[in-house]
């Protein structure tokens, strides 16, 4: 029970998520309990070692992914509009009006 409590407390502290009360408890245990002190040191070292796995995306990926998301979304929107709205306009409006609306709609889609 004590081991589990120490583990949870040490990890919460290392994560930077400890509340004021938990931080006070950590400082008390550091002073009073060598077992907790040792555990905390190991947790800090572990976090440091594992942080080496954090990596940043290269600039090319940043640009490619953003462009791809925006253009795919525009294509999907246009395709959806064509597939759903056009048949509705064709069926419900007079021919002349529906072709005007479709042209407006295309121009709106193209302009994003």
């Amino acid at each position: 029970m004590k081991a589990e409590y120490y583990e949870d407390l040490a990890l919460t502290y290392v994560q930077g998520n400890a509340s004021l009360e938990e931080r006070i408890e950590v400082f008390r245990l550091i002073m009073e309990d060598p077992e907790f002190r040792e555990l905390l040191l190991q947790e800090v070292e572990l976090a440091k070692q594992l942080s080496q796995f954090r990596s940043s995306p290269p600039p090319s990926i940043k640009t490619n992914v953003y462009r791809s998301v925006i253009s795919t979304n525009q294509q999907l929107s246009s395709a959806l509009t064509e597939a759903v709205l056009t048949p509705i306009y064709n069926a419900s409006l007079p021919k002349l009006v529906s072709s005007l609306i479709i042209n407006c709609q295309r121009s709106v889609c193209l302009n994003g």
């Binding site: 995306p57 990926i61 979304n73």
Partner: peptide
């Protein structure tokens, strides 16, 4: 990116999943 790179070594696969992820977010 960092999470996917930790789990997968293939940069192309990481990029593909990133695109799908952020498209879903969008």
């Amino acid at each position: 990116y960092s999470y996917l790179k930790f789990k997968l070594a293939d940069e192309y696969l990481v990029e593909e999943i990133l695109q799908e992820t952020f498209l879903a977010v969008y």
